[in-house]
Design a protein around this nucleic acid. Structure first.
Length: 767
DNA sequence: CAGTGAGCGAGCTTCCGCTTGACTT
């Protein structure tokens, strides 16, 4: 193969492919697949005694790439390092010079923020050298994170339990969830009465009914009722009618964080799902890079979107805008997430890919459209001699602008905020009510975070980066600090007092409250670890810790500070807190909550974390063993009641016997079950383990037995080797051989497999 | 992988940020 003159190295292979097309034949473009070196993994990887010298090694999964790049670099005349223009990208460039042994005179550092031909050709014209100040800022970031993570985690192994973890980002994420949960625990809903009315103008021919709300809420039922009584014969007059022209502006195009939020709200995708689908779209060339904190669009993109808008909606809908990034610590190495080609409204792909693409397309296009013009009318209505007023608001869209295409959704749906068109009214006009309602409402507890709202909050605090939002959520879930759960909610009664034709009436209605889907909440372990970390390492758990160190990283990047000096100062304060935590006796992080006494034995009932997780315990009499039961997954040590704890001991219970064998009902890891003859049968959703009868249990057992004999029947056996069987299981047809199961490779017809073929499959999968 | 909850000790766990596959019982 002929040696190329120029080797360009970028971070992403998809980017390499695109860029290669823009550059001439003299350029070969390859990718490093992100970072190629990292701190040694087996130990701390930092020589603290010698100025915190990092011990870097080529990451195991990058050995191959580095070897290939080294080969190509040695043959090239010039190597162009085109990693991203931010701290991490600069470090990647520097690590490449180190592992590839690139001399300065052979190396050019170039940067561009957008993947357009113009931007890349311009970058080639203006090469520079690697910026060591920026590299040093990255080294400081890397070393600090390693020191924090690798010193705090072992403290948890000793004080709480093995394999736990702590870090600058994940520990603060957990803290946010714990504090929110505490707010919810402490919240007491307080009732109030909201007054709404339906009015009409007796003089207006259509007698159009419109809604209005009183400018005051009442605390008690009595006050609300008294007010309605006074309304019965009151005279209602328009006091004022004001029309204000208003505007509504489109949202900026997506960043990683806003894409995750909108895909969560509009398409019910998890942040991990969103990212993996976006990755597919990126690799297919449909969208620009999906890990970005920038809302900026290239000049080329602005022009292309303008053209598309004009052709779809007309000139009056086009309004070119440039958005400014608000989020803290944004590095803006890429464009906002946008379609690569604005004239591609639809793509090929899975339904999820199509939907996500459509969302990205609409958001990006809408961001370049005219603002909507909306007239807002506010009418105030006076009530006889009362001081309170009714207020009616109406909205008329004079020009829809970007709303023709896209409107951003919100996390919390506002109550009763429905706006409508109001009839024409002048001050002095008399209005009459059709109905006035006093509805009991309750103040609402704070919302639990969803994955996406947690990401949003972290971004506000400048904690974490677009590439780590999704992994951070996986980590705190995998460590058992946090669970993602649905909650069914509860029925709650509320009162409604009505006034119609001068007559009062009242009724009790019922609503479902607190229903939640896929919301995050901390576990007992999460709460315990958080409280311990907060008590011992306040500085790291501080919400502003990241912002503070980021400021210092910036100073290093500007050459105003030496990176190892910054780390030395940090470590001088940090390390003693670790030593202190390890040395302090009796601070084994644990908590125990006394719930009360067991009425049948008079012994103490407590909730605590045991070897296998959260549990409740009824103490035994002298010399007797205590009894134990695990908490269910929606129960917390902090909130479980004595009654709930005692009911955990009601299971397992024996229902009776069938053919002399015991039938036991219990509640296990996978939900309620019946155990009979050494086998477990899951209960149906409609079965209550506390109330299930022996008859019903037997029915379930027989069903399972029948199903098993049916599916255990081998699909195929071989006379020459009885060990080899082809079976039909839960996941389809598979091969069973000497106690192990094997998948049948794609494209093979299971029924026509020969014994030799089966043995071959078994042998191949051994590797 | 549906029961467990005592204690000892060896060996292991862990961070954040940049990027894709390789895995799929």
């Amino acid at each position: 193969m002929k040696t190329q003159e120029n080797l360009v190295i970028v971070e992403s292979p998809a980017k390499a492919k695109t860029i290669e097309k823009f550059l001439g034949k003299e350029f070969t473009v390859r990718s490093s697949f992100g970072h190629v070196r990292d701190l040694s993994k087996k130990d701390l990887g930092i020589d603290i005694a010698h100025n915190f010298t990092p011990d870097y090694e080529v990451s195991p999964d990058k050995k191959k790439v580095v070897k290939e790049l080294a080969q190509m670099a040695s043959e090239a005349k010039t190597v162009w390092l085109a990693s991203d223009e931010d701290r991490e990208g600069e470090a990647i460039a520097w690590h490449l010079t180190q592992v590839l042994g690139l001399p300065v005179e052979q190396t050019r550092r170039i940067v561009f923020h957008e993947i357009t031909k113009g931007a890349i050709l311009a970058a080639i014209e203006k090469p520079r050298t690697v910026d060591m100040n920026l590299v040093n800022a990255q080294q400081a970031r890397r070393v600090l994170d390693r020191l924090v993570g690798y010193e705090l985690s072992p403290v948890l192994w000793k004080k709480v339990k093995p394999s736990l973890s702590a870090g600058r980002v994940q520990s603060v994420a957990v803290r946010l969830l714990v504090e929110r949960e505490r707010e919810i625990m402490a919240f007491q809903p307080s009732p109030y009465f909201r007054i709404t009315a339906q009015f009409y103008l007796p003089e207006e021919p259509g007698k159009t009914v419109f809604r209005a709300e009183l400018d005051r809420r009442f605390e008690t039922e009595q006050e609300a009722e008294d007010f309605l009584s006074r309304c019965a014969n009151a005279r209602f007059t328009v006091i004022g009618s004001e029309r204000k022209p208003g505007e509504r502006f489109p949202a900026p195009p997506f960043t990683t964080s806003t894409l995750q939020q909108e895909a969560g709200r509009k398409l019910s995708m998890s942040v991990a799902q969103t990212m993996s689908i976006a990755q597919k779209l990126y690799e297919a060339g449909y969208i620009t890079y999906m890990r970005t904190d920038s809302v900026n669009l290239s000049a080329q993109a602005l022009a292309a979107s303008r053209e598309e808008i004009i052709s779809l909606f007309g000139e009056e809908y086009s309004h070119t805008r440039n958005y400014k990034t608000k989020s803290k610590g944004a590095q803006e190495a890429h464009e906002a997430i946008r379609p690569s080609y604005f004239d591609r409204r639809e793509i090929e792909g899975t339904p999820a890919e199509k939907r996500l693409y459509e969302l990205i397309w609409k958001r990006a296009v809408a961001s370049q459209m005219t603002e909507a013009k909306i007239d807002r009318t506010v009418v105030t209505i006076g009530i006889g001699g009362e001081t309170e007023r009714f207020v009616a608001t109406g909205e008329v869209v004079r020009f829809d602008g970007f709303m023709k295409l896209y409107s951003e959704s919100t996390d919390e749906e506002s109550e009763g905020g429905q706006q409508s068109v109001l009839p024409d009214m002048q001050a002095g006009d008399r209005v009459e009510y059709r109905e006035i309602l006093a509805t009991q409402r309750f103040t609402q507890p704070p919302y639990r975070y969803s994955e996406a709202t947690l990401v949003h909050r972290l971004e506000e605090l400048g904690i974490g980066r677009p590439s780590t939002y999704a992994p951070t959520i996986s980590t705190i879930i995998n460590r058992g600090y946090v669970v993602k759960q649905n909650r069914p909610g509860m029925r709650r009664d509320y009162l409604q007092i009505g006034l119609e034709k001068g007559k009062l009436s009242r009724k009790t209605l019922s609503e479902n409250v607190g229903k939640e889907k896929n919301k995050l909440s901390p576990t007992d372990i999460g709460i315990l670890v958080n409280d311990y970390l907060e008590s011992q390492f306040e500085a790291i758990l501080d919400y502003h810790f990241t912002a503070k160190v980021e400021k210092e990283f910036d100073e290093i990047a500007e050459g105003k500070k030496e990176w190892s000096a910054m780390i030395r100062d940090f470590y001088a304060k940090f390390h003693p807190t670790v030593e202190h935590a390890l040395e302090t006796q009796n601070t084994q992080a644990r908590k125990e909550r006394v719930l009360g006494t067991d009425p049948s034995t008079g012994h103490r009932v407590i909730a605590r974390i045991g070897r296998y997780g959260p549990m409740v315990q009824i103490d035994g009499a002298d010399g007797e063993k205590a009894r134990f039961a695990s908490l269910k997954k929606d129960q917390l040590i902090d909130t479980i009641t004595l009654e709930e704890a005692l009911s955990l001991f009601a299971l397992p219970r024996t229902l009776g016997t069938i053919e002399g064998k015991e039938v036991v009902v219990g509640s296990g890891k996978f939900g309620p079950y019946v155990r009979y003859d050494g086998k477990f049968v899951s209960l149906a959703k409609s079965d209550d383990p506390y109330k299930i009868t022996l008859e019903r249990a037997e029915e379930l057992i027989r069903q399972k037995e029948q199903h098993e004999t049916a599916s255990k029947e081998p699909v195929k056996v071989f006379e020459n080797d009885p060990d080899m069987r082809i079976l039909n299981g839960r996941y389809g047809i598979y091969i069973a051989y000497k106690g192990k199961n094997y998948r049948i490779p794609k494209g093979k017809e299971p029924m026509s497999l020969t014994l030799d073929e089966c043995l071959d499959i078994v042998a191949k999968s051994k590797k």
